[in-house]
Simulated assay, not measured.
Amino acid sequence: MNPKEAGPTVVVEEIQRRHKDIWALRGVSLHISAGEIFGLLGPNGAGKTTLVRILATLLRPDSGRARVAGWDVVANAARVRAATGLAGQHSTVDGMLTGFENLCLIARLRGMDRRAARRTADELLDRFGLTDAGGRLVKTYSGGMRRRLDLAGSLVGSPPLIILDEPTTGLDPKSRLDTWDAVGELAAGGTTVLLTTQYLEEADRLADRITVIDHGEVVAAGTSDELKAAAGSRLAIVVGEDHQLPTAVRAAVSAGGNSPTVDRRDRRVETVVTDGQSALARALSVLQDEGVDALEVGLGRATLDDVFLGLTARPRPAVTR
């Protein structure tokens, strides 16, 4: 059976959690299928880390329930921990140990005997392209190598779920691409991946499905293509003279766009509109009425950035008692 056709690895049902007078999570529900890369997006303070901590059994929900690999995160916390690998925002490997020693240590903590731990360490070093560096102290590793070692450590014991909490924060572009390749290989091998990230390009490239949360609530869910389609279209107007930019802005606003962005160097105005061709016609009418012959006026697909910005600008709801 294709892993993605199996039952869900993660089920979250109406989870609520609050800290004093602020909702961290406010009735969040979601499910993550086996073998899926599931993207969890949201601004700082949206509730992503709180949800991750609940799934990792580090916090208890105030209400609702969550299951990982069929196990309840409260009633069966030890089972959930055995079924979960976690790689946080910051490297947790020991710089004073070698890569091999780090993986052996994690395997021993997972309950493996010495022989099984050494075999597992060798296999994971090979899988993540770190065999040649396995005998070196981790403090000599690059950021990308440390991240790959983190990912390798999260796979010790072959847990069905890997939680990656902003896994490429602080990495250079090459290391980020290497990490993306490694994450893709995890899912291809049948591992379920829950990915939280601040990099929208990362979610766009990796995630099979995406849920956006803001102020502790789910505000959108779907594939990247579905979210972009729901956001509308991106209207772009390029003019040839600086003095024509205010007219281009008025045309964008008339088209129905909110808060157009202005690139003065390229004399380009962009905004997101919801009614496509009608919006384009309104923009052209304004330009024509004011005698501006634009170099370019066109519609393009909305980006995941447009989706994110359009969904996460609401005021935070107050806690009701």
Rank of each mutant, 00 (worst) to 15 (best):
L164P: 00
T191G: 02
A203F: 13
E13P: 07
L295A: 15
L124G: 02
I163L: 09
A116H: 06
T168G: 01
L295S: 15
L130A: 07
A220R: 01
R114N: 11
V93C: 02
I15E: 01
K48A: 04
L245S: 05
V80M: 12
T49A: 09
R81Q: 12
D126L: 05
T9A: 14
T274V: 14
L177W: 12
A294Q: 06
A133S: 11
T120K: 10
S63R: 10
S278I: 07
G39V: 14
H90S: 07
I37N: 00
A231T: 15
N44Q: 09
R118M: 10
V52H: 01
L235K: 04
I163R: 01
G240Y: 06
T57G: 07
P160F: 13
R65V: 11
D263Q: 11
D21P: 02
R65G: 06
A46P: 10
F128Y: 14
R26T: 14
R53G: 08
N258R: 14
A220I: 02
T49S: 12
V52M: 07
A255L: 10
E13F: 04
A133F: 13
L304I: 11
I106L: 11
R267E: 10
T49P: 00
P317E: 11
G7T: 14
L206R: 03
D126R: 13
D150C: 00
V219F: 09
T98G: 01
A69H: 10
